[in-house]
Amino acid sequence: MKITVKLFAYLRAGRFKISSMDLPEDCTVQEVLEMLAISRKEMEIGIIMINGKRASFNSILKGNDTLAIFPPVAGG
């Protein structure tokens, strides 16, 4: 199945802003993060959204979903 992944802020560094990913069925958000080599530190994610709705590490993705991942930017 194909999904769209959108990354924000410093998660984009060395990765992408938006990309289509081909995934096995029933893939979780956690597995996508691992595929993208988003590190443990970066994984203290601010917000995860699937199709504009709040999701979590364990959420299961479906074909054509859009997954958006925001890190907790906190500097001032």
């Binding site: 924000f8 930017v73 906190a74």
Partner: peptide
């Protein structure tokens, strides 16, 4: 609320 890091802000 505002927050910044490198090239990014919110």
């Amino acid at each position: 609320h505002g927050a910044v890091n490198t090239w990014y802000g919110q």
